[in-house]
Design a protein around this nucleic acid. Sequence first.
RNA 1: GACAAGCACA
Length: 244
Amino acid sequence: IIYGNIIYGHCQAFNMERAEALVREMEEEGIDATMDIYHTMMDGYTMIKNEDKCLIVYKRLKECGFTPNEVTYGCLINLYTKMGKVSKALEVSETMKSNGIKHNMKTYSMLINGFIKLKDWANAFAIFEDVIKDGLKPDVVLYNNIITAFCGMGNMDRAITTVLEMQKVRHKPTSRTFMPIIHGYARAGEAKKAIQVFDMMRMSGCIPTVHTYNALILGLVEKRQMERAVKILDEMLVAGITPN
RNA sequence: GACAAGCACA
């Protein structure tokens, strides 16, 4: 139990060697690892993009007599989408379903995100249809994913209407909701619109993050509006955000 | 049920 927390900490800090050493230490003491420990280990390996190790952990989980649950499959789907192997992720999705485990918002988000990374908008939206068909109500993250997709397609208007839609359903946009939009306008050289969205964002009570500022500054720089970019940079420092 | 596996970046 205590081990679990420490291992979790190491995984988050990318110290996978340390985490692994602890697991071994635990086994030597005759303490059985719990499922969450396997999950955090899989996650850790996913973060450092070590597919093989992650799969080994998965295999060990099964060897220890655990039955994969939705989180386990989620970890696998996450792994494959992060590696850009969406077809593999879909296979996992099928196995999961045939084992009687339904998709939830997170597994769907991961799949959509995988397709978005490949710029496969058609399939991304196909998954979104499945979500609706399942009668699930999209959550904030899923909305953010959809917005990212619209921005990637260059369909900025749909992106904005989606934001309005989610507000209607009483979902508070997060700073990540607006980032792809600001970024999209920035890339298109529409600095004015980017700033408009930025204001809209603050109006809805979102606190801009470093990434938000980065997106905005990038746009201004591309438009050769260096003075404005520098001004924003100052605002950012005043807001107590450290540039990266 | 709530935590917990899903959304940043040239």
